[in-house]
Design a protein around this nucleic acid. Structure first.
Ligand SMILES: [Zn+2]
Ligand SMILES: [Zn+2]
Ligand SMILES: [Zn+2]
Ligand SMILES: [Zn+2]
Lengths: 260, 260
DNA sequence: CTCGGTCACGGGTCAA
DNA sequence: TTGACCCGTGACCGA
């Protein structure tokens, strides 16, 4: 069972696993994507061998694109079903599972997201796995708190602070979130992040520039930055009691999934 | 910052810069390429020094391939991730830009393709650059018209002729297209191509033989040859009004790109 | 469900 | 033979 819980059928083109019909034919991701690209670019291939009889199976489908495309055509893949290229995908508001559903692991999932965001931060790029883990362990709580705020869950945050004045109505797009993580980590007390202290101003500048240049529909940079200030002023945060799993377990899971 | 905007990490094999995981290990281009070649060719090296203790770092990684490969294996580089060879990339395909997009330079691109095809024709092989340019200037319009027909754009062609009977449904593969260009040029009125007049029949024969031998899914030779006849009967063609750039400019561009 | 786009990591290339 | 470089592939995810 590969993707999701869907059972696979056989790709009519190459015999690899197919999880659905594409352009009218049961096809794997590879063949469907290959067909799309070929039609979009209006490519006409030449058979490498010259006789249009190359075998197209999972292992050899990339040997001769000409015969692969010929097989697509022979099996009646529908060129008209390939749409025109669209622009790059629009920035979307980050998706976090809604806090008010019944899933009791909702906080675990948000915490994992916090771990992932921290681990992927560009400031950790040069670090080896052990250093990365240290930084994540020392900083994921404040990112976790940020995600709760972004998700509109002021109520939970209020349980962990005496300051009643919890920021509300905070939202951002994924690029802004990436920059927020940089700003937070550049203000961290972690030894491994000392080098990043001078970068705080730069990342704040990036956030302001990005927001003004990109018509980002959400998130005023001033509001976002003051949220970070608030989180540092009212920290440190210890939100582990929200979790069903251990923090180590969740961090391990994310680290192996993301190949950190 | 080396390649793209990605920051580098350290190659686990030799300590050079790595821009990503390869075969399961953070590796530089050199080590990843070395591993691929070794696995593909199933090479078994012997340690130069004889003790399998050679240092593998950026400066010395090429001293002893045996120890370099041993280090790859020790770090668990995955031999199974090395795929089968693919066909040679060069001359694998031609592309014609889609006619039905909104790009106002679409005809310029097709014209450039016509220039390129003409300049690369085998009949021009022995010519010096100036002669080549003369031939291209005198013959690229009819090739341009052919490409429009191959792209299914009868509508545009109809604007340049009073003959309503425009060939339609014409298609071919790149080899057939090369032969079509030969056939067209062998019928040219250009002085420099006079020598090729007797070759017309030969290239038509080649086209018929190629098509019958190769199971090419597209393009009956009779239909293709009658399309050429139609183009000569209804020419000469002056399609410059379709272009945004000057013909000289486009020809210059192709000549310098293709090093004609 | 089947379109779309993405991008890490495969591939091949060719000058050195 | 090497490796910097660029292109194509396809697993994956969002809509
Ligand atoms: Zn397939
Ligand atoms: Zn083939
Ligand atoms: Zn290396
Ligand atoms: Zn050795």
């Amino acid at each position: 069972m590969g993707r999701k819980d869907t059972a696979a059928v056989v790709c009519e083109i190459c015999g690899d696993k197919s999880y659905g019909r594409h352009y009218g034919v049961w096809a794997c991701d590879g063949c469907s994507c290959f067909f799309k690209r070929s039609v979009r670019k209006n490519i006409i291939y030449t058979c490498i061998a010259g006789n249009w009889r190359c075998v197209v199976d999972k292992g050899r489908r990339n040997w001769c694109p000409a015969c692969r495309l010929a097989k697509c055509t022979k099996l009646n893949m529908n060129r008209l079903a390939v749409q025109n290229e669209r622009g790059p995908r629009k920035l979307r508001c980050i998706t976090i599972p809604r806090i008010n559903n019944l899933n009791s692991f909702k906080y675990d999932m948000i915490f994992s997201k916090a771990v992932s965001l921290t681990g992927k931060c560009i400031l950790l790029n040069f670090m080896i796995s052990e250093q990365r883990r240290e930084v994540v362990e020392e900083n994921c709580q404040i990112i976790f708190a940020l995600l709760l705020l972004l998700n509109g869950d002021q109520t939970t945050i209020r349980r962990f602070t005496s300051n009643e004045n919890v920021p509300s109505g905070v939202s951002c797009d994924p690029e802004q979130l990436r920059l927020l993580v940089c700003i937070i980590l550049s203000q961290s007390k972690s030894n491994l992040l000392k080098f990043a202290v001078p970068l705080e101003g730069f990342y704040k500048f990036c956030l302001i520039r990005y927001t003004s240049q990109n018509d980002a529909p959400l998130g005023s940079p001033v509001c976002l930055i003051s949220t970070i200030d608030w989180l540092y002023e009212n920290g440190p945060w210890y939100l582990n009691s929200l979790l069903r799993n251990s923090t180590e377990g969740l961090i391990n899971e994310v680290f192996s999934a993301e190949k950190f």
